[in-house]
Design a protein around this nucleic acid. Structure first.
Lengths: 221, 221
DNA sequence: AATCGCGTCCCCCGCGCGGGGGACTTCCGA
DNA sequence: TCGGAAGTCCCCCGCGCGGGGGACGCGATT
């Protein structure tokens, strides 16, 4: 089965270069070439190619906006590969959030572009290695346990427990009920927590707990 | 300059297969073959190859634990490529958190393994396309701006501004000073914010703001 | 011209909160 | 055996906070 491809780049030279690359493959067919993002969105909607290769920098509508528009269409089944000269992190995040199937640098060897199209067509995704490196770093920190500040170690088990509940915005009375102790006891714990952590009041405690990752960030709930 | 590679896999057959692949490249030299994770860690520390190719399933110490041990050593400069037969998500996350430079499936074409080694050696990273797809999905949600709750739309510009400051644990007086308005004004804004968002007090407002991502999560600061 | 939303400022009242004390048990280590 | 740390409970006091009102000016919409 042959794969249909749409090319979008504002440089005619680059388009014909890519077209030439695809023409070496009997199963790849370049069905359209456009020079700006708006045309890309329109042609993708009309021709429904298997894969659209979009430059990020394009007139009228850039590749990222075009990607978002294309993938926002529920009837769409075209996969999007994004090409760029510079690999700004911002681009990458937007591209991935939009749901692009690939993020590649123009320095990519021709044969890899071909394989990238095949990868995208079968529903997989790939990212340029130089970008992947930083992506992993970012991904890792987003998953890494945040460094626990030293003063947190001063807290006793009970105090940490209370801090958790304070961070969840419970009042002293509510915490007392949950822990089956008197509310005066809770007050004592809270006071000690504030003193040990150098916080002014429970409002600061809530912010502290969230900033320091003591509260599971919604994605984990 | 020639790149040195260490191979770790408990199947001798697969090792010799990979070794044969590397031997087709004049600039790649396979300096060690080991059959378990413990040996891999030891040999990496001794030989300091440029790249270590580790199977995930290995006796004694699996590839993930081995990766963590190798990369935890500050004197280490060896890059780690992980190979696996099955691409369980859990594996991927652990691998990336440990700092692996690659996560590949054994179904990889030989020439891509070679290029993967070169990519890893120069400090970049790559992930198997079939895995990348799911990684993007996961990564996207972790980066996606949390869906702004509908009631948040009810807030006026000024009220959102005040909410930001409340979330940063400022008192009404401090907010008043920062906004150059009277503190009674701030009280009014805060009251309206609480009413519109259905929150009991500023403590809940702080939690609300953090949970809903209205406060940039430390990594962005 | 009338109205509405917004931002600003003011009053009073009740209450939860946090600081300052003190006191009692249990348990563990010096 | 005697601390000391941890956890529990109690009192008083001051204050920031939030709800209930009301008021005024401004701009945009009707």
């Amino acid at each position: 089965m042959t794969l249909t491809v749409l090319l979008a780049d504002d440089h005619a030279m680059l388009r014909s270069g890519m077209r030439a690359i695809f023409e070496t493959q009997p199963d790849l067919r370049c069905v359209a070439e456009v020079a700006d993002g708006r045309a890309a969105v329109a042609e993708v909607a009309r021709l429904r190619p298997d894969v659209a290769v979009l430059d990020i920098r394009m007139p009228k509508l850039d590749g990222l906006d075009a990607t978002e528009m294309i993938l926002a269409d529920p009837a769409n089944r075209t996969k999007v590969l994004l090409l760029t000269t510079y690999d700004s992190d911002e681009y990458v995040y937007r591209a991935l959030n939009a749901g692009a199937s690939g993020f590649l640098l123009k320095s990519l060897p021709p044969e890899e572009l071909i394989s990238a199209v095949r990868v995208a067509a079968r529903g997989d995704a790939l990212i340029d290695p130089s970008v992947t490196q930083r992506l992993i770093a970012r991904f890792a920190v987003s998953l890494a346990p945040p460094p626990t500040p030293p003063e947190f170690e001063l807290l006793t088990a009970r105090e940490r427990e209370v801090l958790q509940l304070v961070a969840a915005a419970y009042s002293n009375a509510e915490i007392a009920a949950q822990l089956h102790v008197g509310d005066e006891t809770v007050k004592t714990h809270v006071s000690r927590v504030l003193a040990k952590l150098g916080l002014r009041d429970r409002v600061h405690a809530v912010a502290y707990a969230h900033v320091n990752g003591l509260v599971p960030p919604r994605s984990a709930r």
